[in-house]
C-alpha cells in the first residue's frame, strides 16, 4: 500500500519518456503514496476499442486531471474506475485497476461497496428531484451510516459545509435540490458524494455546464477537498487542469500519451501531440 513508486517501467511503452516522467512524480513521493493503480487497461464497446493499454498511478490526496480532445477515452477511463461502465452491456474491460491492494474487477468485488469508496460527480448537475436535505441524506441512508436522525443531520450539515454550500442553503434544507442554481446544484452533488465518506472522488467535467463564477467556486472547493480525498477530474479545459491539478494525464484516441506533474506537462511537454494540444493545435 505505502510502497513508493520507484522505477516501474511497465507503466509506459516508451521508456525514454518514462524516465523523466517518473522522476517528476518521484520528487513528490516523500509526502504522498499511491492510492490507485491502473495497469494495461483496454476497453471495448462491442468491437470498437475505446481505450488502449492505459497504465496510470493515482496519488493519494492529490488531484489528477485527465485531459485530451473529445472522444479520446478520458471519460471512459474515469467510468472504469468505479465500474460505472458496467451499466453498458456491450462494454468489455481488460487489464487491472487496483484500489489499494484490491482489483476492482475481481469477481468477488461488490460494486456497491466499490462505489461507496469511489464516489462520482457527473458532467451535468443531477440532483434528485427531492429536497436538499434528502439529496445529501440519500447515500448515508442506503448505506446505513447514521444510527439516528441527529447523526444523519450531522452528516448532512458536515457534507454541505465541506462542499461550501451550507451558508447558502441554511434554513431552507427542505427546498427542492433542483431549485438551486447550476453551480449550487453541482456543489450539492459534491456534498451528496462526500456524505458517504468516499476515499476517491471521480469528477467528470464537473464545470462544463457552469458559468465562470460557479466554476471558480468549484475549483476552490476541489483544492480544499484534496486534503481529505483523492480526486480524479476529467476536464476539457486546459486552464482548469493547470489551475486545479497536481498531476495530468493526456489522452489521445484512446491512448495515454503523456503523464506527469501538471507543471511539467504544461511547461515542458515531451510528446509532440501533447504540445500540439496544450498549445491549441488539436482540439
Amino acid at each position: 500500500m505505502d510502497a513508493p513508486i520507484s522505477t516501474d517501467t511497465n507503466l509506459d511503452a516508451s521508456p525514454t519518456q518514462e524516465a523523466t516522467t517518473e522522476m517528476n512524480i518521484a520528487t513528490d513521493t516523500h509526502t504522498s503514496s499511491i492510492k490507485m493503480t491502473a495497469k494495461n487497461v483496454s476497453v471495448f464497446y462491442a468491437d470498437m476499442q475505446a481505450l488502449k493499454d492505459v497504465s496510470l498511478d493515482i496519488i493519494e490526496n492529490r488531484v489528477t486531471a485527465l485531459i485530451g480532445p473529445s472522444g479520446c477515452g478520458k471519460t471512459t477511463f474515469l467510468r472504469c474506475i468505479n465500474r460505472m461502465n458496467d451499466l453498458i452491456p456491450s462494454c468489455k474491460v481488460s487489464g487491472e485497476i487496483k484500489l489499494g491492494d484490491h482489483d476492482v474487477y475481481d469477481p468477488s468485488v461488490d460494486v456497491e461497496v466499490l462505489r461507496r469508496r469511489i464516489g462520482m460527480v457527473f458532467q451535468k448537475p443531477n440532483p434528485f428531484p427531492k429536497s436538499i436535505y434528502e439529496n445529501v441524506a440519500y447515500g448515508p441512508r442506503i448505506h446505513g451510516l447514521a444510527e439516528n436522525k441527529e447523526a444523519l443531520d450531522a452528516i448532512v450539515r458536515k457534507s454541505l459545509k465541506r462542499a461550501g454550500l451550507l451558508d447558502e442553503v441554511e434554513g431552507r434544507l427542505d427546498a427542492l435540490g433542483t431549485s438551486l442554481s447550476g453551480g449550487q446544484q453541482q456543489r450539492l452533488c459534491i456534498a451528496r458524494a462526500i456524505a458517504i465518506e468516499p476515499e476517491v472522488i471521480l469528477m467528470d467535467e464537473p464545470c462544463s455546464a457552469l458559468d465562470p463564477i460557479a466554476t471558480a467556486k468549484i475549483e476552490e472547493l476541489i483544492d480544499d477537498l484534496k486534503k481529505r480525498y483523492t480526486i480524479v477530474i476529467v476536464t476539457h479545459s486546459m486552464q482548469q487542469a493547470a489551475r486545479v491539478s497536481d498531476y495530468t494525464a493526456y489522452f489521445h484516441l484512446g491512448e495515454l500519451v503523456e503523464k506527469g506533474e501538471t507543471n511539467r506537462i504544461f511547461t515542458a511537454p515531451q510528446h509532440s501531440k501533447t504540445e500540439a494540444y496544450i498549445t491549441g493545435r488539436i482540439g
Binding site: M1, L99, V104, D106, V109, D110, E112, R117
Partner: peptide
Amino acid sequence: LKNSPLSA
C-alpha cells in the same frame, strides 16, 4: 473500510 476487500 479502508483496507478491507471490496466485497459484501
